[in-house]
Amino acid sequence: MEKSMERKIRRSYSDKIFDVVNLLVMIVLLFVFVWPLWFVVIASVSDPHEVWRGNVVMFPQGFTLNSYKELVKYTSIWTGYANTIFYTVVGTLVNLIMTVCAAYPLSRKDFVPRRFFLWMFMFTMYFGGGLIPSYLVVSSLGLIDTRWAMIIPGAISVYNILITRTYFMNSIPSELQEAATLDGANSLQYLLKIVLPLSKPIIAVIGLYYAVGHWNDFYTALIYVYDKNLMPLQSFLRDMLMSTKLSLSNLTGMDAETVARKMELAQTLKYSAIIVSTVPVLCIYPFIQKYFVKGVMIVSVKG
């Protein structure tokens, strides 16, 4: 009796330390996750000079919206913005149609070549032709430097087909199909009228996966698109964020003070550009994050 009491006390002591340490670690982590994002926000609305001097740490200093006003004048960013919206909307639509067209037949147990196609699709997850062979295929189709280059080569993700198929197989009772067949519905009617309405959660999840993918896509444009008028937001962002050189032609004939101000403003322009490009994703994020999580869970259940 006494021994178990002693053990209990020792345990509660150890657990208390654990709880405190755990709490501290989590609070530190919270800070580590939030601060960089917070810093970009406050730096974008601070006086460029204060940011330059390193005075902006926790709160904005010398509140100003100048960097946003300056950003509005950057027409190339807005061209990119419009292009990205186009690629995201059309691309996601194409993605969803193709994914459902692949996942639904694969989910039907009476579809004879089901296994064969599944292997055919999954094999591409592990092996591919690589950069140049893919480039040559896209180029031979005449897609280079067209809007379709941003949409068609990435029209399907095998991973999303697998998630969707699993959902169709596990979450929609097969009795429904028998009933629909008895009522004289064909596969397409059954899919459109019964399966899809019941699959809204998974359609939302993979739709969001695809949409975020398009929004953040930089690689496709790097490889396939060279026309400035067709480039997505991320390409312009890259030029803006990763280049340290300023266009010096604009700076000639200015005194040192003005040049310094210009450089500081160029720096804060980066912050506002990050905010403007990331806000659409981060704004809808709190509302949809439970769906994203659901998506990961479906895969993990599948194992």
């Binding site: 996750f33 960089p36 970009v40 930089f218 962002l237 912050y271 990050i274 990331t278 981060l282």
Partner: peptide, 22 residues
């Protein structure tokens, strides 16, 4: 903590690298 920790995953690589360079 959970919600905040997922957020960076949705930021594009370009922006992440921009933030790194800043």
């Amino acid at each position: 903590v959970q919600m905040v920790s997922y957020a960076p995953y949705f930021i594009s690589t370009v922006v992440i690298c921009g933030m790194i360079s800043i």
